[in-house]
Design a protein around this nucleic acid. Structure first.
Length: 305
DNA sequence: AAAAGACTCAACCGCGGAGAC
DNA sequence: CGTCTCCGCGGTTGAGTCTTT
């Protein structure tokens, strides 16, 4: 195996000197699973010894929580899950374990990796410091609506006649239509994939930012489209409208030209002030988005997320 | 087909909090 | 109150894999 023995940091005895590191073997996995089945989770150092594993308790805990635990979900994050991550991260920042509590079956490690590899990558490409106001604006004004659109598309394709309208309710939270969504509901009573209850799942937007999706006008395209509106004006925001459309033939793949200037005029640093926007969202097959802002076009590729 | 670069994600590390002594 | 151990969290690393040239 490629794993190596390691010397313990404190070097107190021979047992510790034989501690293993690196990838886990099948045998180690089954030892750990068996031992947890007998004794339950917790007391990881004891568990490691009981199981006869030459691993630290920490390592055992990590292996169990991030990989072996039976209810762990595999596969790509769904748009719903991505949306929830964005929303919760805007609330709590890098509190990965807290965020993970609201995504049953997903681990903090997985969410952290998602954030670093996808979201922060986008930020880098846009020359935005992740976590900055501009970045938060970009997340809220572009990525979240796009994910909502994906959700809507999934919803309408899986349940043909049900409502595909996503509405804001009076508390400025977002109610998603019922559909065949996997279990991202924050309620942990269900461990199986369920149709989630939109009474339980709301996305909270700041007061000045409401959003809803409307049915597209039918003559534009027969592809799924939506219009998202963020109607509240910001007091000291100028009149520049930023809006999406989809001149599909634009094949410039860089995103550095994305113009976030209209978002940088906020006066308060800790609100998620979103300017008055009126943007048409129309997906292309390649899922590449073009932002039109004051005559400049640039591409916003959400598949990377 | 091979090399280089980019990406993913499992695993490790260091730190801080909690609890026992 | 101080020290020690355990546990959990967030940050980081690096091997393996995938994609591009």
């Amino acid at each position: 195996m490629s794993s190596t023995a390691t010397k313990p940091e404190m070097g107190s005895n021979e047992e510790e000197a034989e501690l293993r590191r690196g990838p886990w073997t099948l045998e180690e996995d089954s030892l750990l699973i068996h031992c947890i089945a007998l004794h339950g989770e917790g007391r990881w150092n004891m568990l490691a010894k009981t199981a006869g594993l030459k691993r630290t308790g920490k390592s055992c805990r990590l292996r169990w929580l991030n990989y072996l635990k039976p209810d762990i979900k595999r596969g790509n994050l769904t748009p719903q899950e991505q949306l929830l991550i964005l929303e919760l991260h805007s609330k709590w920042g890098n509190r990965w374990s807290k965020i993970a509590q609201h995504l049953p079956g997903r681990t903090d490690n997985e969410i952290k990796n998602y954030w670093r590899t996808r979201v922060q990558k986008q930020a880098r490409q846009l020359n935005i410091e992740s976590g900055s106001d501009r970045f938060i604006d970009a997340v809220r004004c572009f990525w979240m609506p796009r994910l909502l659109q994906k959700i809507e598309q999934n919803s309408s394709s899986s349940s043909s006649s049900s409502s595909s309208v996503i509405n804001m309710n009076s508390e400025n939270s977002l109610s998603l239509p019922q559909g065949e969504f996997t279990d991202i509901a924050a309620n942990h009573t269900s461990t199986t994939t369920t149709t989630y209850n939109n009474n339980n799942y709301n996305l909270n937007f700041p007061d000045h930012c409401s959003l809803h999706l409307q049915e597209p006008s039918s003559e534009i395209s027969d592809k799924p489209t939506s219009t998202a509106l963020i109607p509240q004006p910001l007091e000291n925001y100028n009149n520049n409208n930023v809006w999406f459309n989809n001149p599909v033939q634009d094949h410039s793949y860089g995103m550095e030209g994305l113009n976030l200037e209209p978002f940088s005029s906020r006066t308060e640093s800790n609100n998620y002030g979103i300017p008055q926007l009126d943007y048409n969202c129309q997906s292309s097959e390649s899922d590449q988005w073009v932002l039109s802002s004051m005559g400049e076009y640039s591409l916003w590729n959400l598949d990377d997320m």
